[in-house]
């Protein structure tokens, strides 16, 4: 599904990705973890062609990412920080993205699912952070693509919405999709992730299941296992 070879990316003097290799061939939920600024978003944006890597190859579903764009029709992406044109109304934005994508969409179902009906006629500038994130989620999930990439989907959501999101992610997984996800909420990650990929110093530091992570660090508790990696590496 996703194949990344020897990926390098710097911003000025700051080396963010430093020869990263990653193969993801399984279906299910893969959590990409790492401390703030470790390059998770940079890695994800490289997959989407939004960040242009200095070196390395990325292939998604057998198609090269560099200078290509059509592969993105099979990716649903949730950006970490939703930047929306502020003077648009919610329903205008949804209609616009549907029109641009030219694909069937289940927006109605998702609007109902996240209880967004009262906000449809509001301008995006006037929404609360959590409501914006829900719009972000609707835009992402409405196209039913085989690869879903979620950058901090939990941010800003209240507990009820968080549970809804978890259910939605599980439903998508049950459909046999591959879901890449980043999150700093460890309980959430532990609950949903089939595999953990841990980014550190521009490379994959750990790649395995939650229980493998626990055994390799000798920590019975997931959160402590992660903290253990970080303290050992002074990150």
């Amino acid at each position: 599904m996703v194949s990344i070879k020897n990926l390098h990316k710097k911003f000025g003097a700051l080396v963010v990705l430093n020869g990263l290799d990653l193969e993801i061939n399984q279906k299910g939920i893969i959590a990409i973890l790492g401390p703030n600024g470790s390059g998770k978003t940079t890695l994800i944006k490289s997959l989407l062609g939004m960040v242009v890597p200095a070196k390395g190859d990325i292939e998604i579903a057998g198609e090269k990412v560099k200078d290509h764009w059509n592969y993105r029709k099979d990716i649903d992406y949730l950006p970490q920080i939703a930047h929306f044109p502020g003077n648009l109304k919610v329903n205008e934005l949804i209609r616009m993205i549907k029109d641009l994508r030219g694909k069937d969409a289940r927006d109605k179902e998702l609007i109902e699912f996240f209880k967004l009906e009262p906000f449809l006629d509001k301008k995006l500038n006037n929404l609360s952070g959590g409501s914006k994130q829900k719009v972000n989620l609707v835009l992402c999930f409405m196209f039913d693509s085989p690869l879903i990439i979620l950058d901090e989907p939990t941010s800003g959501l209240d507990p009820v919405s968080l549970l809804r999101l978890r259910d939605l992610i599980q439903q998508e997984k049950a459909k046999g999709k591959t879901i890449l996800i980043t999150s700093h909420i460890m309980s959430f990650v532990e609950e949903v992730a089939d595999r953990i990929v841990f980014l550190l110093e521009g490379k994959i530091y750990f790649n395995g299941t939650v229980s493998e992570l626990k055994t390799s660090t000798g920590q019975p508790d997931f959160e402590h296992a992660i903290a253990n990696i970080l303290t050992e590496n002074n990150a």
Partner: peptide, 12 residues
Amino acid sequence: REFTELLLAQPI
């Protein structure tokens, strides 16, 4: 810029 970012993630 916001609109541009949104578009960049689309198959365009």
